[in-house]
Amino acid sequence: MAQVISIHSFRGGTGKSNLTANIATAVASQGKRVAIVDTDIQSPGIHVLFGLDEEDFTHSLNDYLWDKCSAKDAAYDVTAQVITGSGTPANISGTVYLVPSSLKAGEIAKILREGYDVGLLNDGFHDLIDQLDLDYLFIDTHPGLNEETLLSIAISDRMVIILRPDRQDFLGTAVTLEVAQKLDVPDITLLVNKAPDIYPRETLIDKVQSQYGVPVGGLFYENDEMLQLASGGIFWLHHPDHAFSQEVHTVARQLLAAE
């Protein structure tokens, strides 16, 4: 049975989309069929990491929500677009699909203005799972708590919350956890991202775990290579031996182990 995993952060700039793309691709590299849905309708962007731009897709999640296409029609197989640092295809053994959100200002405004049927979004997720024979559906959410995010949390088998070692992130994560518990999310994992290297790994993990009572699935240190890549690809394929990449695979293995 497919796992629905929502990736969330209370604040923007945590590296949520970047980690989502990296982890989802790492899971796919283990032979799994994976889809990523960009439900960050207000500020979409994860498609950039897969080398797509607006002209590359004719349908988006917005079209599905307006009944202009099926959910499957808005899903693009981006496996071939996943490339290594040398520009060659990554030869991922599984499959990665991406359901992008529209980048057109008018279409973003229409969704904000009119809203949409939550049941339709939920049905679309399940249609994708069935029709694409998925093993994992990753939901890249909008930062903070809003209606779409609450739905994504509510239907998830697992929620991954990304935070930085920052007081505002810590406070926001507490709120997010409270909401997730109210929505009966079965499994919650924290990922600490953009940690300055002055913090010892075990100390930071212990601090976060003891503060929230939730396991930390991974700790990612800030690094220059990530800044240089600038969302220009999937990091672990560009820097396979980097500590960040090893941690991505550690998180992916945890998700696979929970199958």
Binding site: A109, L112, R113, E114, Y116, E147
Partner: peptide, 22 residues
């Protein structure tokens, strides 16, 4: 029996603003 939920209630931003974005 099904949940009866929408993502949000329509916003009450003036029409002129929305039209400018269309």
């Amino acid at each position: 029996f099904k949940p009866n939920l929408i993502s949000r209630k329509p916003r009450t931003v003036p029409d002129q603003l929305w039209k400018a974005l269309d």
